[in-house]
Every structure is written in structure tokens, then in C-alpha cells.
Computed example of a mutant assay.
Amino acid sequence: MGDWHTLYTPCGAVQAWLAKPDGKPRGAVVVVHEIFGLLPHYLRVCERLAQAGFIALAPAYFDLITPGLMLATDQTGTDRGREVVNQLGLDCGLDVTEAAAQLLAREGHKIGVLGFSWGGTVALLANTRLALPAVSYYATRNPPFLDEPAGAPLMFHFGALDVPIPPAVIDLHRQKQPQAQVFVYADADHAFNRDPDPPYHADAAALAWRRTLDFFTEHLR
């Protein structure tokens, strides 16, 4: 099991969930949540990373706006979540991610970033601006930043049924970041990894997770 720690960042202090493996770590991963805040799902993501041998640290980014804020994954929560991330801004999102990475790096670990939706764009920016290996899941805000050169290995996951990310946008990722791994899951929608809430897709989530673990195993060794 993990536990809570206070993370001090240029934008303010936030709580962060830290999970560690039983044995020698294989590296460390900063987990960046989506627009609903640090839901229990992301604590489980950290635990799964720890079970796979990685230290995982998930900041509660929304603490900078409203401490402890978590939103329902419905339309009301979506609308409020968009307001919150727009108020927070990607620059502060990246500053919090960098502070988390620096904290983990002090222990001598190589750092990666794993982000979902809004967090997937934070992960992309952590790659292009902080040179950290990154995995970005179904991030709708990536296109304006795809011309930024990658600073480290990069992986993208998309659901083919995700209306806000049509095939042309997925192809843009391939064109602008040709060195990156880009995976599309035929029967999956947006947020296909967020169990147990719909539109969770077990098969797509499992395959994407295996690929993600393989990515961090290779690039954080």
C-alpha cells in the first residue's frame, strides 16, 4: 500500500500518493490524472506500477485550486473539471510534474511520466520540455504541442471510438512525432483505462497496460 506525502511545487503545495515496490525499484513514474481529479482509480494505477516494480507518485493537481477536489465522471463533473484544468493551466501542471520528478530523482531513480486525458498532455509536455520518457493516454489537448521535438521516448494510446480524437488527429501524432509509438484500440472509447467506470474496456486497457509496462521497463532501466 502507498501513503500520502506533501509535495512542494512552484505553484503551491499538493498532496501526492506514493507507492513503492517491495524489492529494488526498476525506476519511478509520475502519474498525472485527468479532469476529474485524483480519483481512487489513480491510486490503483500507482499500486499496479508498484506491483510491477516501479515507484509511483501521483500528485493531486487540483489541490492547487480546491484541496481534495474529486469530481463525478458524469457531464456535470466533466464541465467542472474543464473549468478547473483551465484555471490550473498546463504550465502549473508541468511545474507540479517537474517537482514530483525532481523528488523521485533525488533517490537516484530514472523518471518517466504516465498521463491520462488532460494528464496525457501534461505527459507529452514533460517529454518535450523536461526530456522525460512519457506515455500519454487519450489526450485531447495534444495537437497544439505536437511540433515540439521529443526529448525522450514517447508512447500514445487512443480509442478508435473516441469522438474528440478522430483518425485525422491520431494521424497527426504519427506525422509530427514519427519516432513515437502510437497505438489505437478498435473497440475502445475515451477513458477506456478508467476502471470500473464506463467506458472502461477491459481488453484494450490490459493490452495498453502491458505495452506501457514494457515501455517503462525498457526506458527506465
Results as ranks from 00 to 15, higher is better:
95 D>L: 07
112 G>L: 07
114 L>S: 01
91 D>W: 03
82 R>F: 10
81 G>C: 12
75 Q>M: 15
95 D>S: 06
103 L>Q: 01
78 T>G: 11
84 V>K: 00
102 Q>G: 09
93 G>W: 06
86 N>R: 14
76 T>N: 13
87 Q>I: 10
91 D>R: 08
99 A>L: 02
82 R>M: 14
93 G>H: 07
100 A>Y: 03
109 H>Y: 14
111 I>Q: 07
102 Q>F: 06
91 D>S: 13
86 N>G: 11
77 G>Q: 13
105 A>P: 01
106 R>N: 10
105 A>K: 13
111 I>G: 00
92 C>I: 02
94 L>A: 00
80 R>T: 13
108 G>S: 12
106 R>D: 12
108 G>W: 09
76 T>K: 12
115 G>T: 00
109 H>Q: 15
74 D>S: 13
84 V>R: 04
95 D>E: 12
113 V>T: 05
86 N>Y: 06
96 V>A: 05
90 L>Q: 10
91 D>F: 04
85 V>H: 09
98 E>Y: 01
113 V>H: 01
83 E>N: 11
90 L>W: 05
108 G>N: 09
85 V>M: 02
84 V>Q: 03
91 D>E: 15
110 K>P: 04
112 G>M: 01
78 T>N: 14
112 G>H: 09
85 V>N: 01
115 G>R: 00
84 V>Y: 00
74 D>W: 12
105 A>Q: 15
110 K>W: 10
82 R>C: 04
92 C>H: 05
100 A>Q: 08
83 E>V: 06
87 Q>T: 15
114 L>C: 06
114 L>W: 05
101 A>D: 04
84 V>H: 09
79 D>M: 12
97 T>D: 06
77 G>S: 14
77 G>E: 09
75 Q>K: 12
111 I>S: 03
102 Q>V: 11
95 D>P: 08
83 E>P: 09
106 R>P: 03
78 T>K: 13
104 L>H: 01
94 L>K: 02
94 L>I: 10
102 Q>T: 12
105 A>M: 08
105 A>L: 05
99 A>C: 05
85 V>W: 02
85 V>P: 08
95 D>C: 08
94 L>Y: 01
115 G>H: 02
93 G>F: 02
92 C>Q: 01
108 G>Y: 11
95 D>H: 03
113 V>L: 06
100 A>V: 09
104 L>S: 09
99 A>W: 03
86 N>K: 14
84 V>L: 03
104 L>T: 03
93 G>A: 07
107 E>M: 11
